[in-house]
Amino acid sequence: MRKPRFAWLAMLAALALVAAACGDDDGGGDGTNGDDPFRIAIVAPSASNDLAFSQSIVDAVNLIAQERGNVTVQVTDGMFVVEDAAAAIRGYAEDGVDLVLAHGSQYGGSLQEIAPDFPDTAFAWGTAADTFDLPNVFSYEAASDEGGYVMGVMAAALSESGIIGVVGPIEVGDAKLYVDGFGVGVLAEDPGATVNINYIGSFSDVALASEAAQSHLAAGADILTGTAQMVVGAIGVASQNGLPWFGTQANQTSLAPDIVVASQVYHWEVVLREIIANIEGGTVGGEIYEINLANGGLVIEFNDGFDLSDDVRAKADAAIDGIKSGSISTGQ
């Protein structure tokens, strides 16, 4: 038998590697002040423009780069395989990056192994509230239950059937916080309402998220919400059926301008500024940060294209003020 020839296979594999490894490398800094640039690297689970979790951190870092100048931003996105993400995190640390952002609670185990090997490199990971007692690890989380509560109040006020559907990924992290807060908000506005929650078991299965939304429709829901990057499928169902949608993590209005009522937008730059200030002051870890409505890290962005009544808007504003002042509890 002739031996298989692998030349074509090798070429194809090489091409695949080039394509698969092709991450964005945005030179955010202008480099005009002559100093070495501050180097930030992001490792994120989904696409950097997913209109959800990964985009929220990429947008924030790019904003920081614009504000400060002389910042280099490197992004490795699509790291839904944790082992691949670990390799990217280690690679950036070896490369001498000043701040490595491991943007995914699933990366915690890897970071715990990698960070001790690079004591002078600052790592930050989220969403989580645990630095593993390592001196060079920061952690950050989002009090997404706060925005969830506000959305829940509006959803209950808008619902005619009294049944509201939620599409979640896996019951962890900021997704769970958002969903829990949303449920508390709905019941605070309408104690008789029903909140049907469906965690589909995946952060990336768009088709399953779409069908989960369909299952909510069958169960009588007339308002939908959801969290994580796979909800684009559910938003499509809401749009096709003309049902109001509440977004979170990033502004999702562009996905369905007619039906997105409002989005809870993450502004990680609020904590990133503090993290960078700490690094420049010689502290490379050990702190836990949170974005919330009070510190401006969470912002409720309303869609001007959705005809929201003044009454419902007033309820939302009252909920925001109440959470900020501490007079309203989201149950967390």
């Binding site: 594999a13 091409l15 695949a16 590697l17 394509a19 490894a21 092709c22 964005d24 423009n49 369905a256």
Partner: peptide, 20 residues
């Protein structure tokens, strides 16, 4: 791997943010 990487690369370069 080629399909996984290339489809994402083309999406990022030709479209960017998801458009329905």
């Amino acid at each position: 791997l080629f399909g996984l990487g290339m489809s994402d690369l083309l999406f990022q370069k030709l479209v960017g943010t998801p458009v329905p």
